[in-house]
């Protein structure tokens, strides 16, 4: 069409960045940069440090994908997204990949047309209360004021839970995690509810952590994972298998430190396939064969990423729990790479 000439002239202005929907991989390669949607600031999962460097569990997955696709884990443009803007950012092509502790649900998959290509964190919604309240179960919260973070599935879970147990409550709908924690600490609400990981992270960083308890009830399933747009299966596959590669690496004991050594010495065929020494895995979706090796070398395997950002060695101090490998009683079960 001729109108493309006009639009072409317009597009020549320096700030215009074209982004197509169909072939995300080509776009990312052409751009030389991965646009990754992350949380505006959630301790442990995605936040910027004093130097403006993004760190966190979700952020490291973005870096691994960038390493796999572009060969350089620093070639990521992190786009902070709010609860309201995240899915639009993904749908409109503003980001190529959304790793913003988003719960995979039916409507998001089917109606909003996204693919959750893996579950990098199995979570569930819980409650935190002050010890002095003397509450030991969420079912004792009748009449309580509860702080919820908006823009998530938590409002609905909370309403369902209280309805199912025939309890009443007053919701306080807060926009972001730090404000919700402030209100909770100031006593503006009796209980704070969000994903259990967020509660644990919040509690661990409170000045008087011993005065707060997390109640035993987990009222929902929250499979959090990276999301891509429907209809671009190659790109979805790349993200999926980058993530699986990180899991396989943990299963096989391939770490950031020993990866070169393993690559030189290993005779395990699956490890050799993982590291691109055997087979033509990467080439099947348009990458080179050591894409997985680069992804692992970026920040280590899944276990290393977990330990570095959320694990017991960090102030957040989360145990692996459901997110342990299946061999250790968890749910993380990578598809075989063959």
């Amino acid at each position: 069409m001729k109108k493309s000439a006009i639009i072409g002239a317009l597009a020549a202005s320096t700030l215009l960045v074209g982004a197509a929907h169909a072939a995300t991989l080509d776009d990312v390669k052409a751009r030389g940069e991965l646009n990754c949607g992350v949380n505006v600031g959630l301790t442990g999962f995605g936040m910027a440090d004093a130097n403006g460097t993004w760190v966190g569990f979700d952020v490291d997955l973005c870096r691994a994908v960038a390493a796999a696709v572009l060969g350089d884990p620093t070639k990521v443009k992190f786009v902070p997204t709010t609860g309201e803007t995240r899915f639009t950012a993904l749908a409109s092509g503003e980001v190529d990949l959304l790793v913003r502790n988003s719960t995979a649900t039916f409507t998001r998959d089917v109606d909003l047309k996204f693919d959750f290509v893996g579950i990098n964190y199995y979570d569930g919604q819980g409650f935190m209360v002050k010890k002095e309240l003397g509450v030991s179960s969420a079912k004792e919260l009748d009449g309580a004021t509860v702080c919820i973070q908006t823009g998530t599935t938590t409002e609905l879970n909370l309403a369902d839970f209280f309805k199912a147990n025939n309890l009443s409550y007053t919701p306080v709908t807060v926009q972001d995690d730090s404000e919700a924690q402030r209100q909770y600490l100031a006593g503006a609400c009796d209980a704070y509810t969000t994903d259990a990981s967020g509660l644990a992270a919040g509690r661990a960083t409170m000045a008087d952590a011993e005065n707060h308890i997390i109640l035993p009830e987990i009222i929902s399933k929250e499979p959090l994972g990276p999301a891509v747009r429907h209809g671009d299966n190659v790109w979805g596959d790349i993200v999926r298998w980058t993530y699986n590669a990180l899991l396989i690496a943990e299963e096989k004991g391939v770490t950031k430190a020993n990866i070169e050594e393993v690559a030189g010495s290993s005779t395990d065929p699956e490890v050799r396939r993982l590291l691109g020494l055997e087979g033509e895995m990467g080439a099947m979706f348009g990458l080179d064969n050591d894409f997985a090796k680069r992804a692992i070398a970026a920040n280590g395997n899944y276990g290393e990423i977990f330990e570095a950002n959320l694990g017991t060695g960090t102030p957040i101090g989360l145990a692996r729990g459901l997110n342990a490998l299946w061999t250790q009683g968890g749910l993380q079960y990578a598809w075989p790479m063959r």
């Binding site: 505006v40 600031g41 301790t43 910027a48 730090s178 924690q181 402030r182």
Partner: peptide
Amino acid sequence: NTVRADINWKG
């Protein structure tokens, strides 16, 4: 909010 997401400056 970014500053407050840092563990050191939370609160």
